[in-house]
Design a protein around this nucleic acid. Structure first.
Lengths: 148, 148
DNA sequence: AAAAGTTGGTATTTATAAATATCAATTTTT
DNA sequence: AAAAATTGATATTTATAAATACCAACTTTT
């Protein structure tokens, strides 16, 4: 609990995060613009990154550099995550939700306006937090279908 | 029925297929080497393509050129197809099957040796035939989880 | 209030995925 | 048996995704 909290605490300013990841500041902003990550934002518009953020971005880097999956490929894979199952959306909610029928962007990029997600902070949502790792999404689907 | 049979009939030699798709012969071979497609092979090693093959390859081209998903991205998305659900594999079969735990290649590229797939011709398998289209996989998963 | 860092933007560079060209050997067709 | 097409393989080119560099305006820190 406590240690997880620590991992989620936004502590690194963008320059420090970039150094930890061995990439440029601009690349971090690009990932954000592409909806791969949601850094914490202070009262002003300055970004802060947590240990979990760094891990997540390392996964993204590995997908790009080792697995040779393009950014749009990663977005499409993210878009396959059945968020509605995790959040137990009602059939009504689903029918209203743009994220339910999407197939290009992660749910946090296109969440429906009338759904239970609308007012949520996606950064602290389990769908965003626990399924950023490459491979965790298919694991979720496999388990869900097997336990069926 | 009859018309579907016609669409599946391997009739175009590689040069004709390439012309229909407006790509080079070598690109077609590359897609095959990357396990995106399984063309029909005559007694010798010559390839033949069907109308369905052409459609499938058009989908792949659209994913690459329009959606900007890399070939490895497409392979990863194919690998997320729950083939074991379509084929109703037993728990025993699943536990033996490399395709069940994969996350890089489509099932037809790594089917398990001891499974019901082992001796099958993947080209004529519903998993290969019906889920080559971009977006059909997430549709399958969504439906399966919703009907749950 | 001066120094250090961040912002968003455009323009440029780099790395490499995707596609093409070329080849001799083999197969098919006529 | 000659002509046309396909095979696999390597080497090369092209297109573009991903990353970098640079900028003036703004924010934070000391």
């Amino acid at each position: 609990m406590l240690s997880e909290e620590k991992n989620d605490r936004p502590v690194y300013p963008i320059r420090t995060a970039a150094k930890l990841l061995n990439i440029s500041v601009h690349t971090l902003r690009m990932y954000e613009k592409e909806d791969l990550i949601i850094p914490f934002k202070k009262s002003t518009s300055h970004r802060l990154y947590s240990k979990s953020d760094i891990e997540r971005i390392n996964c993204i880097r590995s997908a790009i550099n080792d697995s040779k999956i393009s950014i749009n490929g990663i977005k499409t894979i993210y878009s396959m995550m059945p968020c509605w199952e995790v959040l137990n959306c009602s059939k009504e909610d689903r029918s209203k939700c743009a994220a339910y029928l999407r197939h290009n962007s992660p749910c946090w990029a296109i969440k429906g306006e009338d759904t239970i997600c609308a007012s949520k902070d996606c950064r602290s949502c389990t769908v965003y937090q626990d399924y950023g790792e490459c491979g965790s999404i298919i694991k979720f689907i496999r388990k869900k279908l097997t336990d069926l």
